[in-house]
Computed example of a mutant assay.
Amino acid sequence: MSEPLQERIAQAMADLEATQAAVARAQADLSHASATVRSKDRVVEATVGAQGELTGLKLLDNKHQSMTGPQLAASIMEAVQQGRAQMAHRVMDTFAPFTQPGPAGSARRGVDVDWNRIFGSALSGESRAGSSRPGRNRLRDEIAEDDESAG
């Protein structure tokens, strides 16, 4: 037999409060998070905050003095993009549990998040070492492109 309505409501409220507390903890943890990365040529070190903002930039060992402006700009852009991608993935990993349905019997349904819309260019054109978890829509896009090219 099913539980009385009052018990189900109480359980749903407890689940909601637990989820709200977990989200608040995740937000607090991320408010102090950052990623520091170096460009491949090891000329630039960029630090990026949880919202993708550039919080630090270092030119290492005066290597930049032998570079042209466009070369230095490319190194800076590369390091910043890598940092933004790292932080975007960290945010996605932190909030992933809230995008999944709750355990059996739970009222929590999970939230469908469009990470590409949230992070934009931070997720495009980068690859994370050891990760095979691209954006949700990227696979659909590739399937659609395969269908179009086959026709």
Rank of each mutant, 00 (worst) to 15 (best):
H64D: 14
S121V: 06
A85E: 09
A21R: 14
D93M: 01
K58S: 07
V23N: 04
S31K: 09
M1C: 02
S2K: 03
M87I: 00
M1P: 09
P70K: 13
P70D: 14
T47Q: 13
A104C: 02
I143V: 15
A73G: 11
G120A: 10
Q11K: 12
A129E: 15
A24H: 02
A22E: 07
E45S: 14
R42D: 15
P4F: 14
G135L: 08
E145H: 03
L16P: 00
E17G: 01
D114M: 10
D93C: 03
D141N: 12
Q6C: 01
G52T: 07
D15I: 02
L123H: 10
N137E: 11
A22T: 00
M1R: 08
P101F: 06
A73Q: 13
A73F: 01
P101E: 02
T36Y: 09
G56V: 02
A35V: 10
A28L: 14
E148S: 05
G105Y: 01
P4D: 15
S132G: 15
E126P: 00
D146I: 12
M92L: 07
P4R: 11
T94C: 05
G83R: 03
L16A: 14
R38F: 02
N62M: 09
M13I: 10
Q82N: 10
V111Q: 09
A50L: 00
G110A: 01
A88L: 04
A12C: 09
T47I: 04
D41T: 01
F95W: 05
Q86N: 09
A21N: 09
L123N: 10
R38Q: 10
R138Y: 12
D141V: 07
G69M: 08
G135W: 05
S66R: 11
F98V: 01
T94S: 09
D146E: 12
A24N: 08
P4A: 08
D61R: 14
T47H: 09
A46M: 02
I118Q: 13
E53D: 13
D114Y: 04
T36F: 08
D61S: 13
H32Q: 15
H89T: 11
A50E: 00
A21P: 05
A26P: 05
Q65W: 10
S2G: 06
G110N: 03
S131N: 12
G135V: 12
D61M: 07
V113D: 07
P97I: 01
P97Q: 03
P101Q: 06
T19E: 06
G52S: 03
I143P: 03
Q86W: 01
D146N: 12
G110S: 02
D146R: 15
P97L: 05
S131K: 13
P97V: 01
A88E: 06
V111L: 13
K63R: 15
I118E: 12
R140W: 10
M67K: 09
